[in-house]
């Protein structure tokens, strides 16, 4: 009669072998039961890349934020940053781009100047303490593309410098209180 073999016996034998070898090594080494292993306090080679990745990600974020701030400071506002597709500019000279007709489309695309509402300019003049007559004559029918964004920006800066907005708010509040 064939003897039935325990299927787990082979695995158990392998585990026993592993333990035997590991124990021989363990007993041969010094063991200080009351001392915490020193290597735990030192970051392991596996932990360091994680830390490095975190630092790199943080540095990249700071650089990105600094870049955006610099761009904003240089351009004055997001609106004045060119909206022309960068890719179109790069590819405009290529043969395939011209064949597909995208080149012509890109060439025909013009960067519209930031539109300035003439009423807005007048409102700023009021804020600066000037009367409507003193201010430049504003043609309400004038097309918006004729507005000068640099001029508007200059006036806005001046308005901020001279606390015109606060004065405006005070005036509005006074009017509101009177009406009430």
């Amino acid at each position: 009669m064939k003897k039935q073999i325990d299927p787990w016996a082979e695995i158990a034998g392998l585990i026993a072998l592993e333990k035997k070898a590991a124990l021989a090594d363990f007993r041969a080494r010094e063991f200080a039961p009351g001392v915490l292993p020193a290597r735990r306090s030192v970051p392991t080679a596996e932990q360091r890349p994680v830390l490095r990745r975190t630092v790199l990600a943080l540095a990249a974020s700071i650089l990105f934020a600094a870049g955006l701030t610099a761009l904003w400071l240089l351009k004055g506002s997001w609106g004045s940053i060119s909206s022309e597709p960068v890719l179109a500019g790069l590819l405009s000279d290529t043969y395939l781009y011209h064949r597909s007709g995208s080149g012509e489309a890109a060439a025909s695309a013009t960067v519209a100047k930031a539109p300035v509402n003439p009423h807005f300019a007048a409102w700023i003049e009021v804020g600066l303490g000037r009367t409507a007559s003193e201010a430049e004559a504003v043609d309400p029918q004038a097309p918006v593309e004729r507005g000068d964004p640099l001029e508007v920006r200059r006036k806005l800066s001046r308005m901020i410098r001279e606390d015109a907005l606060e004065r405006l708010l005070t005036q509005f509040r006074g009017i509101h209180e009177k009406e009430a």
Partner: peptide, 23 residues
């Protein structure tokens, strides 16, 4: 130590874990 070996899967970690356990 053997229990730590079973969980850690390698002798070096098992040694550290056994030591930490006793500490």
């Amino acid at each position: 130590y053997c229990l730590c070996l079973g969980f850690a899967g390698n002798a070096a970690d098992a040694r550290d874990l056994a030591q930490e356990t006793f500490a």
